[in-house]
Design a protein around this nucleic acid. Structure first.
Lengths: 388, 388
DNA sequence: ATCCCATAGATAATAAATTAAATTAACTAA
DNA sequence: TTAGTTAATTTAATTTATTATCTATGGGAT
């Protein structure tokens, strides 16, 4: 049954409003919070008092007065708690320890030597996490949980990795194993979705009500964030952007269907098209295509521009269906941003059905590789900051 | 700023939970409501008391006892208020007067004689509405508002029809004009979206958390319903399903882009493909293709099956992106349900990325033409039943 | 029939949390 | 030094759900 109206609801709604206000607008005074949220000053004071007691928020020296008492500024108490985030990609496992503001305090990275099996993989995860758990100068009891951004298909409820194609693994009970080992909160999510959450929380997008982050690299994935939370859909598969059919007669994708967006714009697909067009001496990876383009190689530049056009077509489908306020692009392929973006933006401009559709903000992530790691961290922060 | 935690919030959340419970599960007793919503009996009693006083709910004779006092059953008091819904389509204006349960009490229908202009169109709307306002035996003061399902692009905020291609009208200030004339609440919405809402409220889908309704007829439109409310997206254009690119090299759509879904599956597109394939004596409308197929005409059957396959491809894109619990199909083209559905379902089965994706329920509307009209009605009911 | 128990619903007292109004605190300007 | 302004807290009033208790009513066992 749905969330009913109780005093706890009322309070936790307000608490979360205030906490998020502080997170997004710090430093900020109580009075300012009251103004901007239209909560009354006593409500703000009493909730802030609790937040101070819980250690989630701290006060700092007074701010500037504009003809009256100086305001006491409030901040997220970044050192009150810590979170571990792990990005388990197709080739490496990378982990970070961060504070509550997403500041990275320590990193750990390992290669995934193949062939793997479930036990080996879990062991590598554990090693990685142990390193960050034992960070010098950090009180272990202050670490509130571990978020895992896992490549492949994930069941969020059970925290199980169902299929991880590039690792050649199936049904890895990540959450179960890690909970047993570390006895701490564990969240597991698909990596593209985690990236979306990371972007939404730490990408400097303010309080955007809806955002889609698209990762274009080895594959193409997307995550949909609404009101600061991941949207999963009824069966938890929303955002499978890479396998959107955009060409009825396109070539067959690894998923078995013809004409998926991914068959045009993933790194491997770009390389493949280069091969089929340029023949002998063609670049053999997306990276090489990019390097050639940078050197002014006309065919490579054209290839990337075409790729941008097709990404644009995929995005306009997204705009017309989901109509998010922002779309953020990331992943290896987006390193060719300089060649892709003009074509992407032009395609969207051309194809938008209405002038309003053109208002969707399209940008490239400024977080780079860390978006996914920070997203893994945000999996825990969401619970802390938005406990409804 | 976002909805904050207040006493009104707490109460209206509970009121709406109870009212909707009664709407969906009537007849139902107070005790049963308490059980199913996990609200306490006194809370239920006190809110039900208010609803009885407001006339929104009525009691009926006692239900069956199972070893104790007989329960008093509660119902929506259908005759307490009335709503007018209008479907302003490309060729006709049809209006209904309904009670709170969507029971249609009276209808009015007019042809739209072309050429039209804004004044003529508004006059026809007014005439239509006047007829239903003056329904015999209905207390006019009990009519709470008028919902308009308008063909074309609508600005929901201002209640303005921005573009109505098949009527050749632009910038018709529907809400403004009707409010001036009738001095009553007016809601204006795009017709495909209204249909989605109607389907969600009156299609017998229970409390589906998310639903997409797709109208395939002259054009192809869709509406997305989440938690009983229409999802508009950031710029109010979410659900533009018909103009999803599914074929990079497809023919040019009326919107100017190549390969829109609509260019394959709208009524006119089906007829056009018939013409290009069957040559002399080909059916000239989608309707004729259907009639031929019914008579066993092989080429027509094949054409419809192919159309079904392409609809299926469009839908699987929808499933992978939005992942709604249900998809409901309607519109003129779906009259060929018998030939389309097997191909649609088979395509979805084939192309679904995961077994879960196959769990999306796909069905054809049972409301027929009335889905849009009832959706127009529901535009008002949403406010009454879900006032948050 | 009568007693006991179970279920439905109502009432009264209590608790949680917000809001409004008043108060205290602390600063700027002139 | 005083007036005016902004910040924050305190107190009382208000709203609404909850807990506990009670009344109403019916079925089944004896």
């Amino acid at each position: 049954m749905q969330q009913r109206g109780t005093f706890q609801l009322m309070k936790s709604v307000n608490k979360s409003i205030i906490l998020n206000k502080i997170r997004i607008a710090e430093p900020i005074s109580r009075a300012q919070i009251a103004k901007e949220t239209s909560l009354t000053p006593p409500t703000v004071s009493s909730i802030v008092k609790e937040l101070l007691e819980e250690g989630l928020v701290r006060e700092s020296q007074l701010g500037e007065s504009s003809g009256g008492r100086k305001p006491t500024m409030l901040h997220i108490n970044s050192g009150a708690f810590y979170v571990i985030g792990v990005d388990a990609g197709p080739e490496t496992v990378e982990g970070v320890l961060t504070d509550l503001t997403g500041e990275i305090l320590q990193r750990a990275k390992q290669k995934l030597e193949k062939p793997l099996n479930n036990e080996k993989f879990i062991d590598i995860l554990k090693d990685n996490i142990r390193h960050n758990l034992a960070a010098p100068g950090i009180d272990q009891t202050k670490i509130i949980g571990i978020g895992i951004a896992m490549h492949g298909v994930v069941d969020v409820e059970t925290g199980m990795s169902l299929v991880a194609p590039n690792l050649n693994l199936k049904n890895v009970p990540i959450k179960q194993e890690l909970e047993k080992e570390f006895n701490i909160a564990i969240k597991v999510e698909n990596d593209a979705r985690a990236m979306a959450l990371g972007e939404s929380w730490f990408g400097g997008h303010g309080e955007a009500d809806s955002m889609v982050a698209v990762n274009i690299g080895r594959g193409v994935g997307a995550g949909v964030v609404m009101n600061g939370k991941l949207y999963h859909g009824a069966q938890g598969i929303a955002g499978e952007f890479g396998h959107m059919t955009i060409d009825l007669n396109g070539s067959i994708c690894e998923c078995g269907n013809p004409g998926c967006l991914q068959t045009f714009v993933s790194g491997a697909s770009i390389a493949e098209r280069a091969r089929s067009r340029m023949g002998e001496g063609a670049p053999s990876t997306g990276q090489e295509v990019y390097e050639l383009a940078q050197e002014g190689h006309a065919a490579s530049i054209k290839l990337l521009q075409e790729t941008g056009r097709i990404i644009g077509i995929g995005l306009i489908n997204l705009v017309h269906l989901i109509n998010p306020r922002k779309i953020v692009l990331g992943g290896g392929v987006m390193k060719s941003e300089a060649f892709l973006m003009p074509a992407i933006l032009e395609t969207i401009r051309q194809r938008a059905l209405t002038p309003k559709a053109r208002q969707t903000s399209i940008s490239v992530t400024r977080l780079g590789e860390d978006a996914t790691l920070l997203g893994a961290v945000a999996l825990l922060l969401v619970e802390m900051f938005d406990p409804i």
